[in-house]
């Protein structure tokens, strides 16, 4: 009799334990989920801000996060993906190194049923990433193009410094700019060269271009790091009247616009991009599957006239107020 009671008690205990585990499993599972943040480079403060904001948002949502730096190297990026998948990461927030070269990594994650949310840079496939949250580079550079034409009063010689040639952002920015500027035949582009989104390289490239074209009126740069490098080269050559245009909304360029050293930039919102990527991962964990394949994020034109409205990287006031 005692034995039967003990057996019934043990069965009840087991059933109760099972029910309890089943009811608690989504919550306990969510709290253990891990999100990898793979970024193209941490050698540029813009991407540092993007990665750290994403990591902070992931942690705020109750998940673990780790940042992987690809150092603009697709092979290293592949290693990070392999490590993340082998280590059991449940989602990847991804800033690709190469629009074509990164496709295989995204597909590898998809095959492993790990969702990938692209941040700021896109990959050239529509069936790889769960969603791609991207700055509207084209529209941002249309606005910059209009301002460029007005600033130069429809005529002059200019140089264009392109970013990484394998990155879609490079060409979307260039196309947006040229969709306006090419309609003005008296605006002549005397040189168009890549400086890989890099400040030092931009300085070197422009120094070289200035040897052949010392009489330029403006430089259009595919990002703010290159705009800072271009401004440095122009200052060193004593050409302080050449107008420089950037794209990003980096801290030093916002200050340079305020002090009249740089004409304008396109303000991107990495905080918005990173937060949305983390929120999308959270929604995915909770069962959502119908994500927009591409989600553009608006870019705003920043000039001396409206620069006081903006903080670097499009940060919200409360973020800037923190120490």
């Amino acid at each position: 009799m005692t034995r039967t009671i003990i057996q019934i008690f043990l069965v009840c205990l087991l059933v109760g334990f099972c029910f309890n585990s089943c009811n608690n499993s989504p919550t306990s599972g969510d709290s253990k989920k891990k999100v990898a943040i793979v970024v193209s480079t941490l050698n540029n403060p813009w991407f540092v801000f993007l990665a750290e904001t994403a990591a902070a948002q992931v942690r705020d949502l109750g998940y673990e996060s780790k940042i992987f730096d690809s150092q603009n190297n697709t092979a290293l990026e592949t290693e990070h993906f392999e490590n993340a998948l082998a280590s059991g990461y449940n989602a990847i927030l991804f800033n690709p190194t190469d629009a074509d070269g990164s496709v295989a990594n995204v597909r590898r994650a998809k095959d492993a049923n790990v969702p990938v949310f692209c941040m700021d840079r896109e990959v050239n496939t529509t069936d790889g990433a769960t969603s791609q949250i991207l700055s509207d580079n084209y529209s941002g550079c249309v606005a910059l193009g209009k301002y460029f034409v007005q600033s130069l009063r429809k005529k002059g010689k200019y140089v264009e410094l392109l970013g990484l040639v394998n990155d879609n952002n490079t060409w979307n920015r260039s196309k947006g700019f040229h969709s306006v500027v090419d309609n003005y035949p008296e605006l002549k582009m005397v040189a168009q060269q890549s400086a890989d989104f890099d400040r030092n390289k931009a300085m070197e490239v422009l120094e070289s271009i200035l040897q052949a074209h010392p009489d330029i009126d403006a430089v259009f740069c595919g990002n703010d790091a290159m705009a800072s490098g271009a401004y440095q080269a122009l200052t060193a050559a004593g050409k302080t009247n050449v107008k420089v245009f950037g794209f990003d909304g980096a801290e030093d360029v916002i200050e340079a616009i305020r002090s009249g050293k740089i004409e304008a930039t396109g303000m991107q919102f990495p905080q918005l991009i990173a937060e949305h990527a983390a929120i999308f991962a959270d929604e995915y964990f909770k069962g959502k599957r119908d994500f927009a394949t591409k989600m553009p994020v608006a870019v705003e034109l920043v000039t001396k006239k409206n620069v006081d409205n903006y903080l670097a990287y499009g940060k919200k006031e409360e973020v800037q107020a923190q120490p």
């Binding site: 249309v142 306006v180 927009a292």
Partner: peptide
């Protein structure tokens, strides 16, 4: 003078980015 960009297309609310295979076509 400056009739450029996506204002007309997007103001209409009639077209969606995800109905097109790539951003360049859409632009």
């Amino acid at each position: 003078e400056f009739v450029y960009g996506n204002a007309i297309r997007d103001a209409s609310g009639l077209l969606k980015l995800n109905d097109f295979s790539n951003t360049a076509d859409f632009n």
